[in-house]
Amino acid sequence: MSVILATAGYDHKIKFWEAPSGICSRTLRYPDSQVNCLEITPDKKFLAAAGNPHVRLFEINSSNHNPLLACEGHTSSVTGLGFQREGRWMYTSSEDGTLKIWDLRSPGYQRSFTAPNNCPINSVALHPNQAELVSGDNNGTVRVWDLGTSQCVKELVPDPDVPIRSVSVGDDGRHLVAASQNAEVFVWNAPGRNGQGVGTGGGGDYEPVVNFFAHEGGYCIKAKLSPDCKTLVTTGSDKTARLWDTNTWGMSRLMSSHQQWVWDAVYSADSSYLVTASSDHSARLWSLRTGDVVRQYNGHQNAVTAVALNDCT
């Protein structure tokens, strides 16, 4: 399959879609809880689905509807997950206050990092240098964790006591972005901006670039930099997804077709399309050139809270 598109949410179902036609090609049952997040391995062989408190790994090109692997170790909702660039390991964040590293050949985690006072962690991102994790937590703190030393090497507190809902690091290593619960977005220039990374040289200094309110009067749920690092997408409780130009940090596109909260968004590999997931039981494929909805994916019986896309060639 050249394009893998999957959605999941509160109806305990994971759906795979034929992206061009909008036809659901396969449905899996996620028995434990709602699905909080989805991620596809770089080789397109597996889909990881995270809920409360488990992470389950499913084979994508298989008739087996049961998970291939259940990753046990978190004690509360898993809020974020992703894979190392070559798919050698997986990382997760959780409301139990920990980040964990998993070898997919084993159901148990290999390493764990704990936030002070087990503060719930709401989001995690892997820096493109593959050597640091960035987390955002309920205390309003962004932390950079060095995987080599297992230490937190930097703490950023843009707005104390306002939870950080989402963090993102550009593929070029230039910007670190955090979005708070009150919809304020904070942007820093990261040290080592040649792509070598956040944390280079003992954590380095972060230069604040800008902060702005992305969804006035609402909550910001997700903020994610595009693969080409030219735009940032934010999603919110105001039923919209918004696109921001990373040169000016002004809004370049308002996407307002959803009828309820927009929970998640994912870019195509060439940054020209976006898929959003909403409480209105649907996902939508947008052309970022025109701002139009290209395709709508219907079939869930409850809120769609997670979407994953891998269209890399």
Rank of each mutant, 00 (worst) to 15 (best):
D146R: 00
L147T: 07
L147M: 13
L147E: 09
L147K: 05
G148C: 13
G148D: 14
G148T: 08
T149W: 09
T149S: 15
T149Q: 10
S150Q: 14
Q151S: 15
Q151C: 13
C152K: 02
C152E: 15
V153P: 06
V153N: 10
K154D: 08
K154I: 10
K154N: 12
E155S: 14
L156R: 09
V157N: 15
V157M: 14
P158V: 05
P158N: 09
P158H: 10
P160G: 08
D161N: 15
V162F: 12
P163T: 07
P163R: 12
I164V: 14
I164N: 04
I164G: 11
I164W: 13
I164M: 14
I164R: 03
R165W: 13
R165E: 15
R165I: 03
R165P: 08
S166N: 09
V167P: 04
S168C: 04
S168A: 13
V169W: 02
V169M: 10
V169H: 01
V169D: 02
V169E: 05
G170Y: 02
G170C: 07
G170Q: 02
D171G: 13
D171V: 06
D172N: 14
D172Q: 02
D172F: 08
D172C: 05
D172R: 00
G173V: 00
G173W: 01
R174S: 04
R174A: 06
R174V: 12
R174N: 05
R174C: 09
H175I: 02
L176R: 09
V177P: 12
V177T: 09
V177F: 04
A178P: 01
S180V: 07
S180W: 04
S180T: 12
N182V: 09
A183V: 08
A183M: 05
A183R: 01
A183H: 10
E184G: 04
E184T: 12
E184P: 05
V185I: 14
F186A: 07
F186G: 10
F186V: 01
F186K: 11
F186C: 12
F186R: 04
V187R: 04
V187D: 01
V187H: 02
N189S: 09
A190W: 00
A190H: 03
P191F: 06
P191Y: 03
P191H: 07
